[in-house]
Design a protein around this nucleic acid. Structure first.
Lengths: 257, 257
DNA sequence: TCATAGTTGATTGTTATTGATCGTTTACAA
DNA sequence: TTGTAAACGATCAATAACAATCAACTATGA
């Protein structure tokens, strides 16, 4: 990896929160401690970053508008397969046409769509507070929320069963995440998430699933829906060829990024 | 977790109400007591926060040397009359009985109720995302939201006129803020806020207004409601005696803290 | 092919930060 | 007012991060 590539990644990691830890960089850049220190020193000399003990941050006044405080499980999950999720999110965002309305389910993968939605002038219906926070700085994006109670652990809004909660809204596409996917269908670990996603699925014409390749494994959990309800799956290139083929055989359009 | 990252989170937690408890920080930062104390001491030496027993708060008023995170008018408004607003918020919170449901309107004064609601096991219906963020760490407080679009400038959720947006919910009390109050009624500067508050008022049995004494002045704006719809006003001791008397004459119960 | 400049990785000693423990002080309630 | 529990500040050992130095590698041109 070249210095220019490393610099690009450093800024990429720096953008969300305005801070990267030295340890994160060590993993992301796959470089030695000495190299990373040299990179940071050089960038600081150029005034582009400010070094602090344990990492680096953006200089004052730079964009630090990032997600708000997140619970620890979500925090850990967001960095797992990050680059794969970013690529998947970018590909999913490319499916949106300017000005249209879409639904976005919560999750660390769907969250990566948000940076690429800016400027499209979308109307986004979501039940995830994480998505709301990510979209809030995008003044051109209209955010629509259902009514209901806030479920902290899952960070979503969900109304009691049987209660009308959605604003009158029509969207051609739903972008959804999952804990796992297999021939038996789409799984979530939490029943609350299942209930929330069912609400969205019932409103959607087309369901697009965003899963990184680590999700193609059997796991205990609740089945959200069968593969017949999924129109498209977007995943990364680490997916096994036979898994990919069996999904195609099941009638799912598979996009590998 | 590194110092820079912790500082960022401290300000993030500080932003909603201008106060964070030591206990909240212990959970949020996942750091030892000693480290948190060191962080707070360092930030106080820099004049960025003020330490108090049990936590820390933003310095009041003049934001000359304050952190750069005070970009929006809302952030500036938080520190104005902060201690008065905190006292008003505490008094308002004391009106809530454990386990009941209440409605809380957005605003920098009503926001100060939130720290005192912890442990009451309330159900809170609000249309303000600021209130949601402030209540999110309180695992015992149930948060209910209406459906609708997010209005960024006002930081509230509001559905189009005529659309049913509230979950089925009954609350005996509405706690409301205002831009100004006089004999002609309660005023707000923004028509969107007026529409949102009208929704809440129509649902409320009892309307309690939280205003610091600087709000007792005439101001141009839209009238939200007349004094006849207000059951109680909570304000600070700097209110002029004749103003207080004229409110009482108008049939409003006045609480001075 | 060889030489050389530029970059990277490993090692060292040094410094900064952290967490545990102590005794003391403060806030709250009876 | 007194008692209790929590918060506070100071100290110290363990850990992690740091800077500097030197060896190894890569790419380019003669």
């Amino acid at each position: 990896m070249h210095a220019a590539e490393r610099e690009r990644r450093i800024f990429e990691a720096l953008r969300p929160t305005g801070f990267v830890s030295y340890r994160d960089l060590e993993v992301m850049l796959a470089a030695s401690p000495a190299t990373i220190r040299r990179d940071l020193t050089r960038l600081e000399d150029g005034g582009q970053i400010v070094r602090v003990h344990g990492g680096a941050k953006l200089p004052e006044g730079e964009d630090t508008s990032g997600p708000r405080l997140m619970g620890t499980p979500f925090d850990q999950s967001i960095t797992q397969n990050l680059s794969a999720k970013q690529a998947i999110g970018k590909a999913a965002a490319a499916l949106c046409t300017p000005g249209e309305g879409v639904m976005i389910d919560g999750g660390t993968t769907t969250l990566q769509m948000c940076p690429h939605l800016d400027g499209l002038g979308l109307q986004v219906l979501t039940n995830s507070l994480h998505i709301v926070n990510a979209l809030l700085p995008q003044t051109g994006t209209r955010i629509l929320l259902p009514s209901g109670a806030v479920f902290r652990e899952q960070n979503i809004i969900l109304a009691p069963a049987g209660e009308e909660s959605m604003p009158r809204f029509h969207a051609p596409r739903l972008f959804m995440g999952a804990a796992a996917i297999g021939l038996q269908g789409v799984m979530q670990a939490d029943p609350v998430l299942v209930a929330a996603e069912r609400r969205l699925i019932d409103r959607a014409e087309e369901v697009i699933l965003l899963v990184d390749s680590s999700k193609f494994r059997s796991q205990s959990g609740t089945i959200v829906c069968g593969l017949d309800e999924i129109d498209m799956v977007i995943t990364d290139s680490s997916v096994a060829p036979d898994t990919a083929q069996s999904l195609r055989d099941a009638g799912v359009k598979l996009v590998v990024v």
